[in-house]
Simulated assay, not measured.
Amino acid sequence: MASNNMQYKNLGRSGLKVSQLSYGAWVSFGNQLDVKEAKSILQTCRDHGVNFFDNAEVYASGRAEEIMGQAIRELGWKRSDVVISTKIFWGGPGPNDKGLSRKHIVEGTKASLKRLDMEYVDLIYCHRPDATTPIEETVRAMNYVMDKGWAFYWGTSEWSAQQITDAWAIAERLDLVGPIVEQPEYNLLSRHKVETEFLPLYTNYGLGLTTFSPLASGVLTGKYTKGNIPPDSRFALDNYKNLASRKLVDDVLQKVNGLKPIADELGVPLAQLAIAWCAANPNVSSVITGATKESQIQENMKAVDVIPLLTPAVMEKIEAVVQSKQKRPECVR
């Protein structure tokens, strides 16, 4: 067992306990890793105290769920020891294979469980908002999924504060359960939603957050410098080229360079500082990390020991760097 100071937090206001750092299959499972490699990655996570694993029906077109399910089965884990989540939205090419209709939520959930070879997931998300389906239909369908025992809790991913508020109003009117968690992107370079837009939701609905992209797709590791993309990195993959051009702008690299001395002063790699910073936000229940190598997980997980180092003075230094370019006018014109 690796030395592990993992903390477990309630998922929002629910009774479910999730590790402060979790693991997501987004880029890796099926695209870069097979079952054998997935097993060693998942076990390394468990050894570091991770109990929460995130997936989606769309990841590697369903292959990510199959790999995770098979790996967990072969590892012989006790189901109640882990929290497994998946997300429903993009299930296939047909007109009813996507979105948040009652039809696709029910069929998509059943198909996910079949791929995972599990009787239930602990948590199921609406992977995106669906403008073509009334939110009431989605709220009712998600409650049906829970009533069937296919999932214990439901949440949203990349929904706006208004959409989450609407879902809660409907749930309260119908005496149903609202979404207890949202999964947004959150990192030192992407903060507005979590720190501003969602503020009323934490108190009003006890909304929890499982945030993704703590390293801004690797930018906050400091491994990308002007005009340099390491060949084994995510941005070198063909389907991530446009992401690279969007993320690696001068302003961003300037901030990354400004953060490096703060990490150096604490004696930790920038990546660990960036993950710890996300986890230190009291509204964040769990930070979803990604990794394709065991060594990356071992590094990422050390971030739990960095959280206590984030004193108000250190947080102020970080703030000075990341906000340096973002002095927004107070009034909206």
Rank of each mutant, 00 (worst) to 15 (best):
S40C: 06
A131L: 13
A244P: 05
S295F: 05
V332P: 03
K260M: 04
S40T: 14
Q254K: 15
A303R: 05
I105T: 02
V18D: 06
N10V: 06
M6T: 15
L176V: 09
V50W: 03
I170P: 01
K148M: 12
Q183I: 08
E119R: 15
T211L: 00
Y240H: 15
K36I: 12
R102T: 09
S190R: 09
G267K: 11
K39V: 07
R102Q: 11
T211I: 09
C126A: 15
Y224W: 07
T289R: 08
Q32R: 15
A56Q: 09
R140P: 00
F212E: 04
G24V: 09
N283C: 06
A169W: 07
A169I: 13
Q70L: 14
L270N: 14
Y125P: 03
A320V: 13
V83I: 14
L259V: 11
F89E: 00
N300A: 10
K241P: 00
Y8H: 09
S285W: 02
F212M: 04
S157P: 01
G12H: 07
D264M: 05
P93Y: 05
L174N: 12
G76E: 03
P200R: 08
S101G: 09
G258L: 03
T225V: 10
K110Y: 05
V145P: 01
Q20E: 14
E65V: 13
A320N: 10
G91H: 01
R63G: 02
T210D: 00
L33I: 13
E195W: 10
W277C: 00
R46I: 14
M1V: 14
D122Q: 13
G12M: 05
L189W: 00
N187C: 15
A291L: 07
S3Y: 06
A151V: 08
E66M: 11
V268K: 11
A263G: 06
Q162M: 09
S85I: 04
G267N: 06
L209N: 10
C126E: 01
V58E: 07
V284T: 03
M301I: 11
V18P: 09
